[in-house]
Amino acid sequence: MTSDGVKAEDVQPRTYLAATAVAEKNGKRERAGWNFGGRRDFSYFAPGLVEELAKTAVNRTLVLFDAVQPPAGEIPVVLGPGVTGVLLHEAIGHGMEADFNRKKISTYCTMIGKKVAEPFVTIVDDGTVPHQLGSINVDDEGTLGQKTVLVEKGILTSFIHDKISAKFYGVKPTGNGRRQSYQHYPIPRMRNTYMEAGPATPDEVIRAAGKGIYVEDVSNGQVKIGEGDFAFYVSQGRMIENGKLGAPIKDINIMGNGPKMLSNITMLANDFEFHEGGAGACGKDGQAAPCGFGQPTILVKSLTVGGTRG
């Protein structure tokens, strides 16, 4: 309830089931895991899903025994569908949160209406996707959850607003005024951020990369809002050699610059997926908020890969 007349209530459930596996082979140990969840009730966690979870966690662990280190340097990077959308969230989405732009500390603050990507790139932040972690019926300022197009056909069209930033920019709030709990004040936060699919097949995208790496899963993403620089830890992936997937890779960092990466996206596949996980949360200003993300297979012309081979 607010003094400007809003009366609203919302239930925002969150459940997840996670598994971690540790395996040993020839004296070497590897560990990996997976989780399923979201804004789900317990009927989602049927026996079939539990079995899939266990198999996924084990398979993701066993493949790591064959992992190699890619060479260090700038190479083409293919981001697989679904979970790698966290990179979109971190490297691009945060820079579009309007408080950073209102304070002129985001690299995107002068780019509304400008071309930031190729015309086949559309990025959306949507609070209305069923079961996704960032879905809300109403935000913490009483604005209804809604779909907000951030980049439309390559043009930056909107920031992510709470009421303060919307007033500053003279636009309607986008329903992104979120807070962790009663102890915190609402600030612009993403909900479910995703990039729409393109026309290519995933194989065509991998073929076009030629020689590079294919990223299946990432963790520990961080972005510097002002410079746009970001870094991600690749926990699962593959080498790409001669346009085909090769040996597994793991435990390397990829680095880049958000605006540069966005303009360097050269292909999108037709295999869009949301990540169906329920663990983890986005952190900002000391507040945690559950967010969803998704994307199709994406080819980025080049990113810095941190290997041990120079």
């Binding site: 540790v22 070497k28 140990r29 590897e30 560990r31 963790s219 520990n220 993403g221 961080q222 972005v223 510097k224 620089d229 970001f230 870094a231 991600f232 830890y233 926990s235 793991k250 435990d251 390397i252 960092n253 680095m255 941190g306």
Partner: peptide, 18 residues
């Protein structure tokens, strides 16, 4: 440092720097 991680099982680590 930026991003990065360390694998407690293997000791492998990779992290961005400035």
């Amino acid at each position: 440092f930026i991003g990065g991680n360390s694998n407690s099982t293997t000791g492998d680590t990779s992290i961005g720097i400035s």
